[in-house]
Design a protein around this nucleic acid. Structure first.
Lengths: 142, 142
DNA sequence: CTTGACCCCGGAGCGGCTCCAGGGTTTCCA
DNA sequence: TGGAAACCCTGGAGCCGCTCCGGGGTCAAG
């Protein structure tokens, strides 16, 4: 399998595959006489593993550690749990802040309905007032 | 006001202030004879404006455009609304994907309770199985 | 013999900072 | 008066996870 075939089979961009190799996530593939990379089934599976983890938004460093566990199945898996927990905590923290952000933006957007001059725009007034330290619709819900 | 005073007054890191200046968001401050930057009230307000927008997770480019509106209050504000709407759409899209992600991670985490060898770790099994294209707990909820 | 599809490499660019090295200036205290 | 601590300056690199670019080699079809 050449890199283009692997890319097609997994839906991963060629540049990204080379990047994973450079980043030490994909083992170095074989080479044809002309220097082209050649991949085998195990590369495909490894790449699919990486992408599945990325779909769970894991940083590459975490994936590297998971791959270590795949390579050393006798190790204790406590770290795997901690890794998933940490990832979950990150996601939940981000969710909380985005939920707050959403309501702030909704409140801000409600300040301006019509199309008029910026001078009279409630949104802009809000933002400027907030910069003066005054109470603002968008952050009153904090 | 020197840069350190401005930093203290706004809670913004000194390096970040200099970065905003380089990025064209903060107007160039005056300079003392020794080259130190000197800021006035208007810089403080502008910086507060920027930080308020950043708290709403707006990209610097959007903030630049808002600052243009502040400078040209006679312009139509339709673009402001569109800008906020776009921002809101981004936030909501990200919220949706994070909500899905959260339940995927919760499902994945449920695969492993105890501390045992990686070989028997349900989480790792899940991830490897998913890489083989099999159904996985974490993505069954998509 | 040319066209086009594929592959190689190294390096730059994105956003929004953050940190660092290597220097100058000012302020405070003994 | 001296020396340390605290502040300021600049330009450039580093972070993450790609993505794109330029400049080149390779190979099969028409």
């Amino acid at each position: 399998m050449r890199i283009g075939d692997l890319a097609k089979a997994t839906g991963v961009d060629i540049e990204t595959i080379r990047y994973y190799e450079k980043a030490g996530l994909l083992p170095e593939p074989g080479r044809e006489a002309n220097g082209y990379r050649t991949y085998r089934q195990e590369h495909l599976e490894r790449l699919a593993f990486i992408r599945h983890c990325r779909a769970l938004d894991m940083p590459l460093e975490s994936i590297r550690r998971l791959l270590d566990f795949v390579a050393h199945p006798e190790a204790e898996c406590g770290d795997i749990n901690r890794l998933i927990d940490a990832q979950l905590a990150r996601v939940q923290a981000r969710l909380n802040s985005l939920r707050a952000l959403e309501s702030q933006l909704v409140a801000l957007r409600a300040q301006c309905g019509e199309n008029h001059s910026a001078q009279e725009c409630g949104i802009l007034h809000e933002l400027v007032a907030a910069a003066h330290g005054e109470a603002c619709a968008c952050h009153s819900t904090d």
